[in-house]
Simulated assay, not measured.
Amino acid sequence: MRGPIFAMREFMTGSMTSIFYAIHIDGALRHFHAYCDLSDATSVQIIRAAIIARESPAVR
């Protein structure tokens, strides 16, 4: 667990597990779930960045 990120201890297969995020987007706290390969140290942050990019409103 790092700040607003929580990983399940029960692995689905190999190093794949559920990751839960609490992310502030557009002034609101939102919660997300993803599956992540914890053998890759950057995968948690890559998924978090992808969620923010997908869910943030477009800037015009």
Rank of each mutant, 00 (worst) to 15 (best):
M1W: 03
M1D: 13
M1Y: 02
M1F: 02
G3V: 01
G3H: 07
P4W: 00
I5Q: 07
I5D: 09
I5L: 14
F6L: 11
M8H: 02
R9F: 05
R9E: 13
R9M: 09
E10F: 08
F11Q: 12
F11R: 11
M12D: 08
G14C: 07
G14K: 08
G14P: 08
S15N: 03
S15C: 14
S15V: 06
S15R: 00
M16Q: 08
M16A: 01
T17R: 00
S18N: 07
S18D: 10
S18P: 04
S18I: 08
I19Q: 04
F20H: 15
F20R: 06
A22Y: 04
A22D: 15
A22W: 05
I23H: 04
I23W: 01
I23Y: 00
H24Q: 13
H24Y: 02
H24L: 06
I25E: 01
I25A: 01
D26T: 01
G27A: 05
G27T: 04
A28F: 10
A28V: 09
L29C: 14
L29S: 13
R30M: 15
R30G: 12
R30T: 13
H31S: 10
H31P: 04
H31L: 01
F32H: 04
F32S: 03
F32W: 13
F32I: 02
F32M: 11
H33R: 03
H33Q: 11
H33E: 11
H33S: 06
A34D: 11
A34R: 03
Y35R: 08
C36I: 08
C36F: 01
D37W: 01
D37A: 08
L38H: 01
L38F: 15
S39E: 07
A41M: 14
A41Y: 10
A41Q: 08
A41C: 11
T42P: 00
T42K: 15
S43R: 10
S43E: 15
S43P: 04
S43C: 15
S43G: 14
V44S: 13
V44I: 11
Q45F: 07
Q45T: 02
Q45V: 00
Q45K: 11
I46E: 12
I46D: 14
I46Q: 14
I47G: 02
R48G: 11
R48H: 10
R48L: 13
R48D: 11
A49L: 06
A49D: 15
A50E: 12
A50Q: 06
A50N: 13
I51Y: 12
I51G: 07
I52T: 08
I52V: 13
A53G: 06
A53H: 09
A53D: 15
R54H: 05
R54S: 04
R54N: 05
R54C: 01
R54M: 05
R54D: 05
R54F: 01
E55A: 06
S56L: 02
S56C: 00
S56A: 00
P57W: 00
P57E: 07
P57A: 03
V59W: 04
V59A: 04
V59I: 13
V59N: 15
R60E: 09
R60Y: 09
R60Q: 12
